[in-house]
Design a protein around this nucleic acid. Structure first.
Lengths: 144, 144
DNA sequence: CTACAATTGAGACTGATTCTCATTATCAAT
DNA sequence: ATTGATAATGAGAATCAGTCTCAATTGTAG
């Protein structure tokens, strides 16, 4: 039986007239297993080991589809590169990113979210998504 | 008499053993006069009109120096490009960015800042800077 | 099974940014 | 002012992430 996330992805694809292919399944699968945020390049490098014919373009295309479908989130690392994480069984959260070791710590705060909504509303602005990233040094790195 | 920002820039440069040059002065000056956030490319294009020998690399280098010195901030536009603004006589603020027209609206909220500090502290994380960008549609664009 | 439409991978391409390095400018000490 | 050590500059090459193109392949409705 197909696990939940795969089904959700398939449904999302179908609703856009897209197909559920081997490559797309592999990419989602890898993202699900990953313990941390993955750059497209890292994802490509790792998946290539199993499937040496996989194309870089397919990785980017699939990540975009996942992002559009609301199944994955993109964050920006301290060096400017992008990284992705899946959103299954994860509540909304924001990130603290260590500028030394690139560790990513997740946090949530309902009050911040509420205030955000109040602010956008007061400007007649319709929020679609946001990025709240705090850069600094994690506990380990700040003492080195 | 040299205006404040130029003096501050010179001081920042000196403290790093760097020199206050014509190009650096021009770039800061342009940033000060700009009414909106400038991409490095736009800055280069405009300044090239006056000083046709100015190099792109110098623009990027100078923006980095300004950023390091805490005299300029970088934001990321909806299309992924970066843009800069100077920080003279401007309180800290975050941004709402229209995904259609790229308009940038500034906002501040002390409560959010306080909560942020509380959160980072609870993780033993030392914040250096943060990026809080809300993407969506501005009042004008959402009705089109 | 067929036919059409969507997907794919390879590699060319793009745009932003960084790098290299020969030349030029700055500045402190003559 | 001249010098010399050092840093900054500009031109263009190089890099890097990401996108595009297109011929070949695959998925799927019928």
């Amino acid at each position: 039986m197909k696990p939940e996330p795969q089904k959700a992805f398939q449904k999302a694809l179908e609703s856009k007239g897209l197909k559920f292919t081997k490559q797309r399944a592999e990419i989602l699968d890898f993202l699900l297993k990953a313990k941390k945020h993955l750059t497209p390049e890292a994802l490509y490098r790792e998946l290539s080991k199993k499937d040496s014919s996989l194309g870089r373009a397919t990785v980017f295309r699939t990540l975009h589809v996942l992002e559009d479908a609301g199944l994955a989130d993109k964050i920006t690392l301290a060096d400017g590169r992008n990284a992705y994480e899946h959103k299954f069984a994860k509540p909304h959260h924001d990130h603290m990113i260590c500028v030394d070791c690139s560790e990513v710590i997740e946090f949530t705060n309902d009050t911040i979210e509420e205030i955000q909504n109040k602010i956008t509303r007061s400007f007649g602005f319709s929020p679609l998504w946001h990025r709240h990233e705090i850069f600094g040094k994690c506990r380990k790195c700040k003492t080195i």
